[in-house]
C-alpha cells in the first residue's frame, strides 16, 4: 500500500484520434501503456507527471499486421505477444523480448514504451537497428515515419516531440538468421551491461548490427556491417573473420564506466558477442559448420 498519487489527471481515451487530441490539448500529459518504466520513475520520484494519458484502451495500438515484406507492430503490443506470435518472422526482436525483465514485466511492457523511454539499454532497440525498422509517429498534424537509426538523440532522448505518440514500428521480416545477445551479471531479470543484435540477409548479402548499453544511445556499427564475407565460399568463414567483426563492433561502441560494468569490459564483451553472433548466423545461413 502506498499513498495515492496526488491530483494527477488520468485521461483514458477510447480511440487514437481522441488520444491525439487530448495530447495536443494537454502536452504535459505523459502517455502510459504498460507503465513498466514510467511507474518505476514515479515510485522513485524521478518524475511526477501532472497528467497521464492511458493508452491501454486503444485497440489499434495493440495489434500487429503482416505487411508483406514487413511486420507492422502496434506500439502497445506487449513483449509476451512478440515472443509468442512473431518469433518466426522476427527472431531477433523476439529473442530480445525474451530477455526483458520478468514474465510480469513482459506481459505489461511494450515496444512503443521501450522506444519512448529511449534508454541506451533498452532491450528492444538493437534488433530494430540491425533490421532497419521504421518508427511511426502520430499527432493531430498527421503521421510521420522516422527510421530507427534517426530516432535516438541522446540518453533517454528521442525525436519524439510534444503532442506526438508512437503508434507503430514496422520491422522488415527476417531474410536470414538473426541473433540477439545480452550480457548481464545475473542470468535473468537484469539491465544489459551491453547487448548486441545481428541480422544476416543471405540473398541481399547484407549484415546489420545494433549495439545496446554501450553508448549514449543504441548504436549501429556500419563499419562492421561492411566486413567482407565469403558469400561465394561460405566454408571459408573462419575465426579470424569473426574476430575482425568483433573488433569492428567494439570499435563502434562508445561505452562508459558505471555501476553495471566498465567501459573496457563492455568493449571486450561486445567483441566476444559479435564474433559468436556472426559465427552463429553464418553457420545457420549456410547449414554447415565452417572451418576454424
Amino acid at each position: 500500500m502506498t499513498a495515492p498519487l496526488r491530483a494527477a489527471l488520468f485521461h483514458r481515451p477510447a480511440e487514437l484520434d481522441e488520444a491525439l487530441r487530448l495530447l495536443a490539448a494537454h502536452p504535459e500529459a505523459v502517455p502510459v501503456a504498460g507503465g513498466t518504466d514510467l511507474m518505476v520513475a514515479v515510485n522513485y520520484r524521478h518524475t511526477r507527471p501532472a497528467a497521464m494519458l492511458d493508452l491501454t484502451r486503444l485497440a489499434e495500438l495493440r495489434e500487429w499486421s503482416d505487411e508483406g515484406d514487413a511486420i507492422r507492430i502496434g506500439s502497445g503490443v506487449p513483449y509476451t505477444r512478440i515472443i509468442a506470435e512473431l518469433a518466426t518472422v522476427l527472431p531477433g526482436l523476439a529473442a530480445a523480448a525474451r530477455t526483458v525483465g520478468s514474465p510480469q514485466i513482459r506481459n505489461r511492457g511494450t515496444l512503443g514504451g521501450n522506444l519512448a523511454t529511449a534508454s541506451p539499454a533498452g532491450d528492444g532497440h538493437p534488433p530494430l537497428l540491425a533490421t532497419g525498422a521504421d518508427i511511426e509517429i502520430a499527432s493531430t498534424a498527421g503521421t510521420r515515419t522516422v527510421p530507427v537509426t534517426a530516432f535516438f538523440t541522446g540518453p533517454k532522448r528521442s525525436v519524439l516531440a510534444p503532442g506526438e505518440l508512437i503508434t507503430a514500428v514496422t520491422v522488415p521480416k527476417a531474410a536470414g538468421p538473426q541473433q540477439f545477445l545480452k550480457v548481464g551479471t545475473r542470468n535473468a531479470m537484469v539491465i544489459a551491461v551491453c547487448s548486441l543484435a545481428v541480422a544476416l540477409d543471405r540473398d541481399a548479402r547484407r549484415l546489420g548490427t545494433g549495439i545496446g548499453s554501450a553508448g549514449p544511445t543504441p548504436l549501429t556499427a556500419p563499419d562492421a556491417d561492411l566486413i567482407e564475407l565469403p558469400w561465394n565460399r561460405p566454408d571459408l568463414f573462419n575465426d579470424a573473420l569473426a574476430a575482425e567483426f568483433g573488433r569492428r563492433v567494439a570499435a563502434a561502441a562508445r561505452p562508459i564506466d558505471d555501476v553495471r560494468g566498465t567501459a573496457a569490459y563492455r568493449r571486450h564483451a561486445l567483441a566476444v558477442c559479435a564474433a559468436r553472433a556472426l559465427r552463429r548466423v553464418w553457420t545457420a545461413a549456410h547449414g554447415t559448420e565452417s572451418t576454424r
Binding site: 545477445l181 545480452k182 550480457v183 548481464g184 542470468n187 535473468a188 559468436r276
Partner: peptide
C-alpha cells in the same frame, strides 16, 4: 540457454 552462463541473455550456446 537458461542452463548456461548468461541464461536468457543467449550469450553462449556452449562457446567458452
Amino acid at each position: 540457454i537458461v542452463e548456461l552462463p548468461g541464461g536468457t541473455g543467449n550469450t553462449t550456446h556452449g562457446e567458452g
